[in-house]
């Protein structure tokens, strides 16, 4: 009885100490970091920072995913990620919608991005929006293709693919009595528009979870923390890209 009481006391004490340390760390970060200069447009400071850092990024980033939680991130903040990606030259940017709010507000989000795009060279192509650039081909240089995915694009879509195979609506040729990963991958490619597998997924906050992000496609995706609190700014963004660049992919070898 007494042992249990002390056990509980110590347990709560340990967690209290961790909570205090984390809180102190967060306060320290908030006060000692450069405040954001302007939240309405991409500033000269942003452009300069991108220009300085991009030459150091040697590993080509094809597809960036932002784990977006609309309860933590504002549309303004998320819109900047599209612009910075355009400046850096990332061809595919996906917002993974954790709460479901982003898909509902896609039009509003689209307008926020377009507002910030002014004066920046390059094109933004929205998978679900009419093309304002007058180009139907997403392979132009300096084009960023924006997608919003949610839980339904993950597990439920794979389940749908398997149902279609069972109904023989989708082919899945098997050389033995069990499909191989390559065989199922071929069938799944009919379900997804052709976008590269994500190289990098960014998240904010102290804990990392995938929330159901594209389970088939994330086998080699690097999960990198953008910020400890839920703030989004250009220096953290470039910092995450630099971190990604130091990562060494070995492909099982």
């Amino acid at each position: 009885m007494l042992a249990r009481f002390f056990g509980n006391l110590l347990f709560n004490l340990v967690h209290l100490v961790i909570a205090i340390l984390v809180a102190v760390n967060n306060v320290y970060r908030r006060f000692w970091r450069k405040p954001a200069i302007s939240r309405d447009e991409v500033t000269k400071y942003d452009l300069q920072l991108v220009r300085e850092n991009v030459p150091q990024l040697r590993k080509k980033l094809h597809h960036l995913v932002m784990l977006s939680d609309t309860e933590e991130h504002s549309l303004d903040d998320l819109a900047f990620i599209v612009i910075w990606s355009l400046l850096v030259g990332i061809p595919y940017v996906t917002f993974y919608d954790i709460t479901g709010d982003l898909i509902e507000n896609e039009q509003k989000f689209f307008l926020e991005v377009e507002k910030r795009k002014k004066g920046i060279p390059g094109f933004i192509k929205w998978s679900k929006m009419p093309d304002l650039n007058g180009f139907s081909n997403g392979t132009q240089p300096h084009t960023v293709n924006v997608n919003i995915f949610s839980y339904d694009d993950g597990q439920p879509k794979i389940a749908e693919c398997i149902r279609k195979i069972a109904l023989k609506e989708l082919p899945c040729d098997s050389s033995s009595d069990e499909f191989t990963a390559q065989e199922l991958d071929k069938s799944l490619s009919f379900m997804y528009t052709s976008i590269p597998e994500p190289d990098l997924a960014l998240y904010t906050g102290s804990s990392c979870r995938t929330f159901g992000l594209l389970p088939w496609q994330i086998r080699l995706t690097e999960f990198i923390k953008l910020s400890e609190d839920s703030s989004i700014n250009v220096s953290d963004f470039l910092g995450a890209l630099c971190k990604y660049n130091k990562c060494d992919q070995r492909y099982g070898k």
Partner: peptide, 19 residues
């Protein structure tokens, strides 16, 4: 900080990832 094709389906819902 990647999953390297391990338990991709199972970690989707509630798993906390610790690197």
């Amino acid at each position: 900080v990647r999953l390297s094709d391990f338990m991709l389906w199972q970690i989707s819902k509630r798993t906390v990832l610790y690197f």
